[in-house]
Each structure stands twice: as C-alpha cells, then as structure tokens.
Design a binder for these strands. Structure first.
Lengths: 216, 216
DNA sequence: GCTTTTTTCTATAAACCTATAGATTCTATA
DNA sequence: TATAGAATCTATAGGTTTATAGAAAAAAGC
C-alpha cells in the first residue's frame, strides 16, 4: 500500500465517492457517532478497505470539511470581485451560500458541526479558508458603506458574521425541511438584512409582497 | 439501587453537579466523543458511580438539554407576557437569549448541537419546549406588526426563526470568544434586526454611534 | 494470455466503552 | 454509638472500535 497517489481518473473518482459517503455518514451520526464500518457499508465495501482511501478516520473528516469549503470560498470570491450594485451582490452571496448547502449539504453540515473535533493543527487549512470567506463578505459590506449604499454607522465585521450565522442556520433548515425553497429563504434573508423589521416612515406605500415561509 | 428519588437537599445538589459535569464534557467532546469515564472524572468519582445519578448516558444528555431549555423558555414567556413597547421587548428577548448562553453556556451548546443524537421519543419534551419558545418570539413580532410598529409585510415566522439562528450563533461565539461583551452583541443584533443595513433616506442625520466588535 | 498494479477482502490485535452487581464506605439520626 | 440508608467503589461481562498486515481478486498494460 505505498500511498495510492496515482492520479488516475479511476482513483480520483472512487476517492470522491468515498468522501461523499463519509460526508453523508458524518452528517447523520456525527464524527464520533459514526464508525468506519458505517462509511464502508454505505460505499458497499468492507470496513478495512476504507483505509485504502483514508489514512485515518480523522483524515476523512478533514477531507469532507475541505471539499465543502472549497466551493463555498471560490463562489464568494468571484461574487465579491465582480463589479455591481451592492444589493445584487449581497443577494448573490446569500444565494450562493444557501446553494452550497443545497448541493453539498452533508459536507457543509459536517464542516459546521464536526470541524472542532479535529485537532488544532489539522484545522489550520480550514481556518484559512474560513477567514477568506469572512473577509470577502466583510469587504462587500464595507464597499457598500463607502459607496453610500449602506448606513455609515454599520459594523461591517459584526454584520458579516451575523450573515454567516443566519445562512448557516437556514442552510441546515433547508436540509431538514424539504418543502422550504432556497429562493424564498434567500429573498427573505436579503429583505430582513437590508431593510430590517421596523415600519418605514418614508411616505412610500407598503408593497405588500409577503412570501410566507411556514415551516412547522 | 432502588431509584434514588429521595428528594433530600443533598441528593438534589449532587445530582445538579452531575448534570453540570455532563454538560461541560458533552459541550467539549460531543455526546459520542465523551465517555462516561470523562464525566465521572470531572466529578471526581469512578465511572461506575455515575450510574447512581443517571440511568444511562442518553438520560444524562436529555437532562442536560432540559436544564438548558427550562430557563430559556421561562424567560421569554415572562418577557412576552408583559406589556411594553416592542423595541424594548425585543431587546429584552435577545438579551435574555444571550444571557442564557452566558450563564448556562455548556448546556445550551449541548442542546443545540447534540440534541439530535437523542432518539425521537426522548426528544418530545425538548421539542415541546422549543416550540413554546418559538411561538412566544413569533408572538412578539406579530404584535409589533399589528400595532404598526413593524412593517406590515414582515414574515413573522421567518423572522422569529432567523432571530433564533442569529442568537444561537452569537451565543456560541460568546462562549468561545471571551473578549466579546454580551451587551454589545445584544445592541448590534437589535440594531441590524430593526433597522437593517441600508442607508436611510429619511432626511434624519446619521447618528454615528458605531460600536466596533472586532473578533478576529 | 501473461504480468503488473490497483483495489478489495479476511482476520486480528489492542484498546475502549456502557451498564450492572455486589461489596464497601460514608452520613445522619435515634 | 449503633444502625439504616445514601453514596461510592471494584470488577467485569459483552460488545464495539480503529487500524494494520497479508492474501486474494479485479483491472490494466503489453
């Protein structure tokens, strides 16, 4: 077993499937609650065979988290770098965040909930990616403030983190609550974040376009 | 060991300590990652002795979650039932939510992150308490809409859930980020939630009162 | 078709984990 | 101080877990 680093298409493909299986099992049972046997079973192989793809269970967790973050970060970076009206950018950022949950749901959930069970040094790479995401998002807000589209007194750092918290919350809900539509959630998040809840006294008539999102 | 239900002060006290120890260990290592030996160690007793206080490890998890929720729910109910201006109520609700994290941090974290590892029937009671919390919070928003203090087109259900998500996010951050001040976070949450991020075109001058909350 | 490499299998060591039973030590009270 | 009951200890059964090693099967290359 001399490190299967042959970059054959075949291996890459199978390895990817193994990561996906690990993501699904970790998402369902948690890192410690899941056994390597569970993952192997989902892949249709024997427990011992799993070690052909992962050096250890911990390495599997790390890989799952990384796959989740890579998409996530590359999306926000392309959104942040393109010029455009702030409202549109923000909407795109939220939509992308939630879409990542829609397409890569298990891995994202695992990253959020299980990442801290990795030892510190294994988390370094993850932290770096996470920081990049935060910075990009914060940058969008800062830009909005400097162009006068957002309130001058806005705490961009706090707001960016809050948005991440909000999106993660709804991302998980999307996963557990099939009837929820990603577009509706996106729209609602944008709305609250931009306009807040208070009644506006601007003289403009209320546009009564409520999209009810009954969950349970 | 005929069910130690003697309601002596002594037992109640020790039992409470056992729940707190379980909360701390579960919060740190997760339900499956923590062993009964870990909990016993934290209490300064032997692993087997723990079963004097808990019928099973699962029962311990259930108790931890319940202690967290009880405070949490009773607070919101007293806030929601008292009359008062909406903004004040909302501020109180957020402050109470975050305060629960401050005082009962481990148990709250465990409830959020580990609750789903309980079997469905053991979660019934928890779900009921959670629903009560949600309803009370949603009620506060609905009241605000009907009294004209909040936008008529506000989706109260969505907003209530979002606030829960937001508070849980910041609650966890408070726990991991000592320098963060609960009052600042509360203020920032209220501000964003009520006013949103957009620059206001009301003719009122901007009150530049930014409280920066640098985290990392 | 034969050889080499990749992939999977089987078997197992060594550790750990929950829960229980019965013995033992503490504590309070009469 | 003697005694009942509460609290803890020790020991262990029975099971699961990760990770490794070497054999076997499958796939690829020539």
């Amino acid at each position: 077993m001399p490190a299967p680093d042959r970059n054959t298409t075949r291996y890459a493909h199978r390895h990817q499937r193994a990561v996906a299986a690990a993501a699904a099992v970790f998402a369902d049972k948690g890192f410690h609650g899941a056994s390597t046997r569970d993952i192997a079973e989902k892949l249709g192989i024997q427990q011992g065979s799993l070690y052909y793809y992962f050096k250890s269970k911990e390495a599997a967790l790390e890989e799952v988290c990384l796959t989740a973050l890579r998409d996530y970060v590359s999306h926000i970076e392309s959104i942040a770098s393109q010029p455009g009206k702030l409202e549109v950018k923000l909407q795109a950022a939220i939509a992308a965040h939630l879409a990542t949950y829609e397409h890569n749901n298990e891995a994202m959930k695992v990253h959020n909930e299980q990442r801290l069970y990795l030892p510190k040094d294994r988390r370094k790479h993850l932290n770096a990616l996470g920081s990049r995401y935060r910075q990009q998002l914060e940058g969008i807000f800062c830009e909005g403030v400097s162009t006068g589209q957002l309130r001058k007194d806005l705490d961009c750092h706090f707001t960016a983190l809050s948005l991440i918290g909000l999106c993660n919350y709804w991302g998980i809900q999307l996963l557990r609550n099939a009837p929820l539509k990603t577009e509706d959630v996106t729209e609602n998040c944008v709305d609250i974040l931009l306009h807040g809840c208070l009644a506006r006294h601007t003289g403009m008539p209320d546009t009564d376009t409520q999209t009810d999102t009954q969950v349970n």
